[in-house]
Simulated scan of single mutants.
Amino acid sequence: MRNDPTILIADDEPALADGHAAQLEAYDVRTAYDGAGALEALDADVDVVLLDRRMPGLSGDEVLERIRQRDIDCRVVMLTGVEPSVDIVSMGFDEYLRKTVSKRELEATIERMCDRSTYDAKLQEYFALASKRAALETEHPQSELEAKPKYEHLCERLEAVEQTLDTVLTDLPEEDGYLVATDDPASTQSDRSVN
């Protein structure tokens, strides 16, 4: 990862996109106000995309699909007002944030994404899956989620990836927020390793 990450902000509300850009002045920031503009602004120099889901023309979901089809090695954060449903299980994003977010949260998320770019593919998959699970569990009661096959599949896949990673997870920085997301809430810090 370069020392000066490039961030692409795509949101159809120009005031919001420009506001985020102003908050992230320490980075090289590009802005786009629709899906087509986001794809035009996207190239191999972009490290992190902050992507709204609801945009006219090409939606954020469609933009995300095209980013992954282009095989550009960037992290994608869905930054949206859309409540996550189990449909997010099949989406190729790395993090899901609900609007509105503070400057501090934006910066912390970008730093996490930049760190994750240095991880291998399996670790990146682990954190993307854990982010989806955390987003769903934050917005929906467990009883509702457990009735959804897609959620069950997500949990099974996450567990399978955890088992392949084994002790690698214990060596990750504490700031990388999802070590705890897959553990039992009653577990202690010393228990938060993958057996």
Rank of each mutant, 00 (worst) to 15 (best):
T170R: 08
P149C: 03
A147I: 00
A135K: 02
A134I: 04
S143L: 05
A147T: 12
C155R: 14
L106V: 11
L172V: 09
T118M: 03
E137G: 07
H140K: 12
A108I: 02
D115I: 12
T167I: 04
K148I: 00
K132Q: 11
R157T: 14
V101A: 04
E107Q: 12
E175D: 14
K103E: 13
R104M: 02
K150R: 15
S131T: 10
R157C: 01
D120P: 08
D166C: 06
E111K: 15
R98E: 09
H153M: 12
E152Q: 15
E107V: 15
H140M: 09
E174S: 08
R112F: 03
K103I: 01
L169W: 01
E152P: 02
V161E: 10
D115S: 07
V168I: 07
E162H: 02
L169N: 07
S117N: 09
V168D: 11
S143D: 07
L169H: 04
H140D: 11
L129F: 06
A128Y: 01
E146F: 01
E144N: 04
T167L: 06
L136M: 02
E174I: 08
V101C: 05
E105N: 10
A121N: 07
E144I: 06
T164R: 11
D115N: 04
K132T: 10
E144Q: 10
E139D: 11
Q142F: 11
R104T: 10
L129G: 07
L123Q: 15
Q163N: 12
V161Q: 03
V101D: 00
L172A: 04
E159Y: 14
H140L: 08
S117L: 15
E105I: 13
F127K: 04
T138P: 00
E139Y: 03
L145W: 00
V101R: 03
T118S: 12
Y151Q: 04
H140V: 09
E162Y: 00
H140F: 14
L169G: 05
E125L: 11
D171Q: 08
P173Y: 07
R112S: 15
Q124M: 04
L169K: 08
M113A: 14
C114H: 05
Y126R: 05
P173K: 08
K122T: 13
Y126I: 01
R112L: 07
K103D: 13
V161A: 05
V101W: 00
C114E: 07
E139P: 00
V161I: 15
A121L: 12
K99E: 08
K103A: 14
E174W: 04
D115G: 01
A147L: 13
L123W: 03
L123M: 11
Y151S: 06
K122M: 11
F127Q: 09
A134M: 07
E139N: 10
I110F: 02
R104N: 02
E137F: 10
L165A: 05
L129W: 08
E175M: 06
E105V: 15
K99Y: 03
Y126N: 00
K148F: 01
V101H: 00
E162R: 14
E174D: 14
P173E: 10
S117H: 13
T164E: 12
E144K: 10
D115T: 13
E175N: 05
A121P: 04
I110K: 05
Q163M: 09
S131Q: 05
E111N: 11
P173T: 09
H153D: 14
E159S: 15
L145D: 00
Q163I: 06
A108D: 10
A147G: 09
